[in-house]
């Protein structure tokens, strides 16, 4: 991870890609700023995430995960359900609610 990115994201934030089923909280930052071999550029990924409802301030809960490697994940974002791969979820930073 880039050093400046680590600084810019507030303490306690974790990427959605590391969340487990049952984890819930709030999305605090959507920033696609690292290239990870996607077929699209990082800004396009950011816009697609935003268009699918992953936007700062949205409440989320990880509902399900796949059998192999826990991938992909199904996430409730506000009042809809979205499936995505963990690699695409790396760019969504969240604050987890303490359980």
């Amino acid at each position: 991870m880039l050093a400046d990115q680590a600084v810019a994201i507030e303490a306690g934030a974790t990427p959605l890609s590391r969340a487990r089923p049952g984890d819930r909280g709030v999305i605090i930052d959507v920033r696609a700023d690292h290239a990870n071999g996607h077929g699209i550029d990082v800004h396009e990924l950011e816009r697609r995430l935003l268009e699918s409802g992953f936007v700062e301030g949205a409440a989320f809960e990880v509902l399900h995960q796949g059998l192999f490697g826990g991938d992909p994940i199904a996430v409730r974002v506000d009042d809809m359900r979205v499936a995505l791969r963990r690699r695409d979820a790396e760019d969504v930073w969240v604050r987890l609610e303490s359980k």
Partner: peptide, 11 residues
């Protein structure tokens, strides 16, 4: 080698 993102609404 490009992989498209997989983002899909679960209706």
């Amino acid at each position: 080698g490009a992989v498209e993102p997989f983002l899909m609404e679960l209706p």
